[in-house]
Amino acid sequence: YFTQPVNSEAFERLIAELPRDVYRAKGILSFSDTSSRFWFQYAYRESDYMKITPQGDVPNVAVFIGEHFDQTVIRNQLLELEAINES
């Protein structure tokens, strides 16, 4: 879960550099460089973003699915995205 919006370009770089052992990812995000919210999905080394208007209070969240990848590394990279936004 994200506590605040993240930079879209930094997030897209992170997704593009995911280890091959991450097969899918998906979630809903607010980006700091736009007022829109986005649903994203990642599969087969390709990512897609769609502007959405959630009904109700939907948290910003990203889920990563795969095997034998270091969850801690990805979690720390995501936390760094939030820290970049704070500075």
Results as ranks from 00 to 15, higher is better:
A43Q: 09
L79Q: 14
R20S: 14
F2Y: 09
S36P: 07
G56R: 09
S36M: 14
R20A: 12
S47Y: 03
Y49M: 11
F40S: 05
E86C: 13
A25G: 11
R37W: 04
T34W: 06
N85W: 14
E9L: 13
E82V: 09
T3Q: 11
V6W: 02
Q55G: 11
S87Y: 07
K26A: 07
Y44W: 07
Q4G: 14
H68C: 08
D21M: 10
T72Y: 07
V61F: 11
S36W: 14
I28Y: 05
F11V: 00
N7I: 07
E86A: 14
D57E: 11
L29S: 00
Q55K: 14
Q55H: 15
R13F: 00
S35Y: 11
Q41P: 03
A25E: 01
L81Y: 06
E82H: 06
F2P: 03
G56C: 05
Q41K: 09
I52P: 02
A16C: 06
E46G: 04
W39A: 06
L29W: 01
S35Q: 13
K51V: 15
Y44N: 14
M50H: 10
R37T: 08
E17F: 08
I15A: 02
I74N: 05
D21P: 01
V61P: 05
V61Q: 14
S32C: 05
R24V: 00
E80K: 13
L78A: 05
E80C: 10
S32E: 06
K26E: 04
E82I: 04
F11A: 03
R37M: 12
N85L: 09
L81E: 02
N7W: 02
A43P: 02
L79S: 12
Y42S: 01
F38T: 05
V61N: 14
Q77C: 13
E67L: 06
D57R: 01
D33G: 10
Y23L: 09
Y42T: 03
T72S: 06
Q77I: 03
P5F: 02
I74D: 04
K51M: 15
Q77E: 12
F11Q: 03
Q55T: 14
T72P: 02
N76V: 06
S30P: 05
E86D: 15
P54S: 03
N60L: 10
P5Y: 00
D33E: 10
E9G: 09
D48F: 12
